[in-house]
Amino acid sequence: SLSVDNKKFWATVESSEHSFEVPIYAETLDEALELAEWQYVPAGFEVTRVRPCVAP
C-alpha cells in the first residue's frame, strides 16, 4: 500500500522574543526536524527542539 504512517511531533520554534511549539507530521524524528527547519528557518525562526508527541 502507499499509505504513509505519519506521526505527530512537537517542534519548539524560537524567535528573538518568543518561543512556541508547533505540531509537525512526519514519519521519523529526522524528517520532522527537516520539515520544521524548512518551514520556519526562512521566516527567521530557530528550531531548537523536536520531540515525539506522547499520547496521554
Rank of each mutant, 00 (worst) to 15 (best):
S1Y: 08
S1E: 09
S1D: 11
S1P: 10
S1Q: 11
L2E: 08
L2F: 13
L2Y: 10
L2G: 12
L2A: 11
L2H: 12
L2W: 11
S3Y: 09
S3R: 11
S3N: 10
S3G: 10
S3V: 11
V4E: 08
V4C: 15
V4S: 10
V4G: 12
D5T: 14
D5Q: 15
D5A: 14
D5I: 14
N6S: 13
N6T: 14
N6V: 15
K7H: 09
K7L: 08
K7A: 09
K7Q: 08
K7R: 11
K7W: 12
K8W: 15
K8E: 05
K8S: 05
K8V: 13
K8C: 15
K8G: 04
F9E: 00
F9M: 00
F9D: 00
W10V: 06
W10E: 00
W10D: 00
W10G: 01
W10C: 15
W10R: 03
W10S: 03
A11C: 08
A11F: 06
A11K: 01
A11N: 01
T12P: 00
T12D: 01
T12A: 04
T12V: 05
V13I: 14
V13T: 01
V13L: 11
E14A: 12
E14S: 13
E14K: 14
E14N: 08
E14P: 01
E14L: 09
S15H: 06
S15T: 08
S15F: 06
S15I: 06
S15P: 01
S15G: 07
S16F: 10
S16K: 12
S16V: 07
S16A: 11
E17S: 13
E17F: 13
E17K: 10
E17V: 09
E17Y: 13
H18C: 15
H18Q: 11
H18N: 07
H18M: 13
H18G: 14
H18V: 13
S19P: 02
S19R: 12
F20M: 07
F20D: 01
F20R: 03
E21H: 07
E21P: 01
E21L: 07
E21D: 09
E21C: 07
E21W: 06
V22F: 05
V22S: 01
V22L: 04
V22N: 03
V22D: 02
V22T: 04
V22A: 04
V22H: 03
P23K: 06
P23I: 15
P23V: 15
P23D: 04
P23M: 14
P23L: 15
P23N: 04
I24V: 06
I24Q: 00
I24F: 04
I24H: 00
I24A: 01
I24N: 00
I24R: 02
I24L: 04
Y25I: 06
Y25C: 06
A26Q: 01
A26W: 02
A26C: 05
A26E: 01
A26N: 01
A26V: 02
A26T: 02
E27P: 13
E27G: 13
T28I: 02
T28D: 06
T28S: 12
T28A: 03
T28R: 03
T28K: 03
T28N: 09
L29R: 05
L29H: 05
D30I: 10
D30W: 14
D30G: 09
E31S: 06
E31I: 06
E31Q: 13
A32E: 01
A32C: 06
A32H: 01
L33R: 15
L33T: 08
L33C: 06
L33A: 05
E34K: 15
E34P: 01
E34H: 12
L35G: 02
L35Y: 08
A36M: 04
A36Q: 02
A36V: 05
A36T: 03
A36N: 01
E37Y: 14
E37N: 12
E37P: 01
E37F: 12
E37H: 09
E37L: 14
W38Y: 12
W38D: 09
W38T: 13
W38R: 15
W38A: 15
Q39L: 15
Q39D: 04
Q39F: 15
Q39N: 06
Q39Y: 15
Q39K: 12
Q39R: 10
Q39H: 09
Y40W: 15
Y40Q: 03
Y40G: 04
Y40M: 04
Y40V: 05
Y40R: 09
Y40A: 04
V41R: 09
V41L: 10
V41C: 05
P42Q: 07
P42W: 12
P42I: 08
P42S: 09
P42F: 08
P42H: 10
A43P: 04
A43S: 08
A43F: 14
A43E: 09
A43V: 07
A43L: 15
A43N: 08
A43G: 06
G44P: 00
G44S: 01
G44K: 00
F45N: 01
F45K: 01
F45Q: 00
F45R: 03
E46A: 10
E46P: 02
E46G: 04
E46R: 15
E46N: 10
E46I: 15
E46Q: 14
E46H: 11
E46S: 09
V47T: 01
V47A: 02
V47C: 03
V47K: 01
T48H: 04
T48W: 03
T48N: 04
T48F: 02
T48R: 05
T48M: 06
R49F: 12
R49Y: 10
R49S: 14
R49C: 06
V50C: 01
V50P: 00
R51T: 07
R51S: 05
R51E: 06
R51L: 06
R51K: 05
R51F: 06
P52S: 08
P52M: 12
P52F: 12
P52R: 08
P52Q: 09
P52E: 14
C53W: 06
C53H: 10
C53P: 04
C53T: 05
V54E: 09
V54K: 11
A55I: 11
A55K: 09
A55P: 09
A55T: 10
P56T: 10
P56Q: 12
P56L: 11
P56R: 07
